[in-house]
Design a binder for these strands. Structure first.
Lengths: 124, 124
DNA sequence: AGAGATTTGTACGTATGTATG
DNA sequence: TCATACATACGTACAAATCTC
């Protein structure tokens, strides 16, 4: 059931019914509306968080994530790049939001750069 | 407390005490060992899952993720690449594991390619 | 083949803490 | 000060899949 609720909310986000920046109904409200326990509602919201679709600002509420402005980082000859989820330390230090990967660029000289994937685009 | 347990397990993984492919103790076992509820243990494991550190194969157990062999995709002039968490559809169709981002390559001709980030490396 | 144990998944409930408005 | 809303932690129960005996 929490997956169905997540699907439903995901659709509302994709359709624009819940626009970027909009707040989701509170967990209690969702629980009442759909006849679920708050536990199940939280599981649904947790899924959307892990997908990077919503951000939670306790106790203000849960909001649809808005795209960040991105800069382009240029890949030079011999460089490679990968993506993965950040470590807790990286999340703190680089202020990485929930459900946002990091892009790691390995430079030809052996150095590395780590970026929050929602603020960076890799180009050539 | 679930964060402390997650930290502890994460350290055991990082140190190699829990090597890639090794199984974690069962949730019940962890709960007993650390005097926690199974709920808290599951929260800790969920954190590690979202970080891509472990995979769960119910009801076989929870295992430390092993690195996949990667191929390099070349970025051509005018191409850009980003990373984000996959949609549920992408996860099914591309067989993306939990806690693994996708890398999206936007080609200069307007086409797009989506890859599981643990199997791809972007190069120039 | 079948029975039982193990392990993760789901759903419920309760209580308390913390931060915002 | 009070209400609201998310976070954490405990407990219970049952389902589903796998493995073992």
């Amino acid at each position: 059931m929490f997956r169905q609720l997540a699907d439903l909310l995901r659709d509302r986000i994709a359709s624009g019914d819940l626009a970027p920046g909009a707040s989701l109904p509170s967990e209690l409200r969702l629980a009442q509306e759909y006849g679920l326990s708050r536990t199940s509602v939280r599981q649904a919201v947790a899924l959307l968080r892990s997908e990077g679709l919503v951000i939670v600002e306790p106790p203000r509420g849960t909001f649809v994530r808005a795209d960040e402005p991105t800069e382009t980082v240029t890949l030079l000859k011999g460089d490679t790049a990968t993506a993965r989820m950040p470590t807790p330390a990286e999340r703190r230090e680089l202020e990485i939001g929930e459900g946002i990967p990091v892009i790691v660029i390995f430079r030809a000289d052996g150095s590395r750069q780590v970026y929050s994937a929602d603020r960076i685009r890799v180009g050539r």
